[in-house]
């Protein structure tokens, strides 16, 4: 069994997009539930040993629908409380331009939280190819050299080819040739990219931002397809996190009178592939799902996914 925690709220006092303090409430509740630790700092200590921690964002869609700055700030606040130097936290993406366009302040200096793209001076891609199955790629040196552990911070959204864009798909931003892997609904490629050795070994935690979910027309931003779900999906198992994300996405599509992804030629088969190669759990029945509803004060109670 893999544990997945969904923290959500329909509290109208929680503004959207969420603030740093509001994300703090979500993360605290979610990380406690995931680890059984008394607080978020203890949870992060349990999940992430000392070392440099990366946060892989998804900033393809600009400010409107990328990993929120407030989420990375709230998480960084907690990581610093684990006695980690701020400079040992690296917010990153494929390019610095995408980060900047999503509202991030770039910083490649040796003080404060780093924020940079793989294209930043002196970074680039690995010298050697990493291969698994159908995938042969150079991997961002941010993964191979800079960070010791990575937190995957995608946004939950529809994808015109893959069907689901969440954690596994977000790892396309860690390789040099993602354009080669969009055939066949990104299957088996999404699974195989996430199983490249440095990515598989360093990804320790997935936190999917499902506060505002674009349920159609992705991955670019299309405002008319935005649905307020108000949740985060948190897990150490990247496949299980995506599987729950898919359940949410399909529910939102149905709610908005859109057919299941499989009916529009976008079946999400790569999760099954990922499970078959041992990357995680893709069967809902084998996932220990805990749903928490929280209010504006951070009080959490058992909730339902929908």
């Amino acid at each position: 069994m893999s544990k997945v925690v969904v923290v959500k709220s329909q509290d109208r006092e929680l503004r959207q997009p969420l603030t740093r303090a509001e994300y703090n409430l979500f993360l605290t509740a979610g990380l406690r539930a995931l680890t059984g630790e008394p607080n978020a700092v203890a949870a992060l200590r349990k999940l992430l040993p000392p070392g440099v921690v990366g946060m892989k964002t998804n900033c393809l869609a600009g400010k409107a629908n990328s990993t929120p700055v407030a989420l990375t700030e709230a998480l960084a606040d907690m990581l610093i409380k684990t006695d980690r130097d701020a400079n040992d936290i690296v917010v990153w993406e494929r390019t610095s331009r995408e980060l900047a366009e999503a509202g991030y302040e770039l910083n490649a200096a040796s003080t404060a939280i780093r924020c940079l793209g793989t294209d930043a001076n002196g970074v680039g891609y690995s010298d050697q190819f990493y291969s698994y199955g159908e995938v042969n790629s150079l991997v961002s040196r941010i993964i191979t050299r800079v960070v010791d552990f990575n937190i995957n911070l995608p946004v939950l959204k529809d994808h015109s080819i893959a069907g689901l864009s969440a954690g596994l798909k977000n790892m396309y931003g860690a390789i040099h040739n993602p354009n080669k892997y969009h055939g066949d609904n990104c299957n088996p490629f999404c699974a195989h990219v996430a199983n490249l050795t440095p990515i598989r070994l360093k990804n320790r935690l997935t936190i999917i931002d499902a506060v505002r979910v674009q349920y159609n027309g992705g991955p670019a931003y299309v405002g008319s397809y935005l649905h307020y779900y108000g949740g985060l999906v948190i897990a150490t198992d990247p496949v299980a996190a995506d599987r729950v994300g898919l359940e949410i996405l399909e529910y939102i599509r149905a709610t908005n009178n859109h057919p299941p992804l499989a009916q529009v030629e976008r079946p999400v088969q790569y999760l099954k592939t990922a499970a078959e190669i041992g990357l995680g759990i893709a069967e809902l029945d084998d996932i220990d799902l805990e749903v928490l509803d929280i209010d504006v004060t951070g009080n959490a109670k058992e909730g339902t996914l929908f």
């Binding site: 393809l60 869609a61 015109s160 354009n179 080669k180 055939g183 027309g217 670019a220 299309v222």
Partner: peptide, 9 residues
Amino acid sequence: TDLERGYCG
């Protein structure tokens, strides 16, 4: 689709 690239990159 929007903001995506072809296989050629």
